[in-house]
C-alpha cells in the first residue's frame, strides 16, 4: 500500500510540476462561473435549478477536456519514454503501478471537483445568501460526481495503457467518454428502436448521473460506476502484464 501511495503521490505532484493542474483548475472554475452568469436570469437570479446545471455541465466539461488530458500520459507516455521500465523494475507489483497511477490522476480530479464547492457555498452560504438550499441533491450530486470521475479516469487509464502515443490516447478517451455521455441523450434515443434505447440509457453516464442530481443515490448507479472503474483497472493491469509475454 505504501508503494501504491508513493506512486500516486508522485503522479499527483507531477501535475503541479507542469502547468497542467493550474490551467485545468483555473479554466474549469472560470468556465463554471460563466455557466452561472449566463444561465437563466444571470447570477443574481440563481436558484436551485442553476445549481443543477452545474452538476449536468461539470461532468461533460471533465469528460471532454480535463480527463483525457490528465489520463493520456499516465501509461502511454511512460511506455514511450521508457520510464516505465525504470518504474517497474523497482520492487513494485504491477497492480500497485496501476492503482497508484489511478489514484494520482483521480486525486487531481477530485480536488478539482472539490474546488467547485465554492460556488454553492458562495451562493447559499457566505457571502451571498440567495435562498435556502436543499442540501440533499447537492450532496448526492457530489457523490455522483466523485463516482463518475473514478469511472472516467479509469477509462482514460485503460486507453492510455493500450498505446504508446499520448495523443492517440487523448482522442480515443475523448471519443469514448463523449459517447458514454450522449448515448442516453433524448436526441440519440428518438431515432433508435425501443430495445436499443433501453440498453443505451442503461450505459449512459448522463442518465446515471441524472438520478444523483435529483437527490437519489441508487445502489444500481453506484454499482454501475464502480463496475466500470474496476473493470477498466483490471483491463489496464492486463495491458501492463502483457508486455511480459509479447
Amino acid at each position: 500500500m505504501t508503494t501504491t501511495m508513493s506512486i500516486a503521490k508522485r503522479e499527483f505532484r507531477s501535475y503541479f510540476d507542469s502547468p497542467v493542474a493550474y490551467v485545468v483548475i483555473c479554466l474549469g472554475l472560470a468556465a463554471l462561473g460563466l455557466v452561472f452568469f449566463n444561465y437563466g436570469g444571470g447570477f443574481w437570479q440563481v436558484d436551485r435549478a442553476s445549481l443543477r446545471q452545474m452538476f449536468v455541465q461539470l461532468p461533460r466539461g471533465l469528460s471532454w477536456l480535463v480527463i483525457p488530458v490528465v489520463t493520456m500520459r499516465l501509461l502511454a507516455e511512460e511506455k514511450r519514454s521508457g520510464t516505465l521500465e525504470m518504474l517497474i523494475t523497482l520492487p513494485v507489483k504491477d497492480h500497485e503501478v496501476i492503482l497508484g497511477k489511478f489514484l494520482g490522476a483521480w486525486g487531481l480530479i477530485v480536488v478539482l471537483i472539490g474546488a467547485t464547492a465554492i460556488y454553492p457555498v458562495a451562493m447559499f452560504g457566505w457571502p451571498w445568501d440567495l435562498g435556502v438550499l436543499d442540501f440533499g441533491p447537492v450532496v448526492s450530486g457530489y457523490v455522483g460526481l466523485v463516482l463518475y470521475s473514478g469511472a472516467a479516469v479509469s477509462v482514460g487509464l485503460f486507453i492510455s495503457s493500450l498505446t504508446d502515443h499520448q495523443m492517440i490516447a487523448f482522442f480515443i478517451t475523448f471519443l469514448v467518454l463523449f459517447m458514454l455521455h450522449f448515448l442516453g441523450n433524448s436526441i440519440t434515443l428518438s431515432v433508435l428502436p425501443e430495445k436499443a434505447e433501453f440498453v443505451l440509457s442503461f450505459i449512459s453516464f448522463d442518465t446515471r448521473l441524472d438520478s444523483f442530481n435529483r437527490g437519489m443515490i441508487n445502489s444500481r448507479d453506484v454499482v454501475y460506476f464502480m463496475t466500470i472503474t474496476i473493470g477498466c483497472l483490471f483491463g489496464s493491469f492486463w495491458a501492463l502484464e502483457r508486455r511480459k509475454w509479447l
Partner: peptide
Amino acid sequence: RQRVGYLPQRAPLYGD
C-alpha cells in the same frame, strides 16, 4: 528487484 540496482538503456528518468 529488491536486491538489484538496474539502469536501463539510455537512462529513462522522469524529466520533470
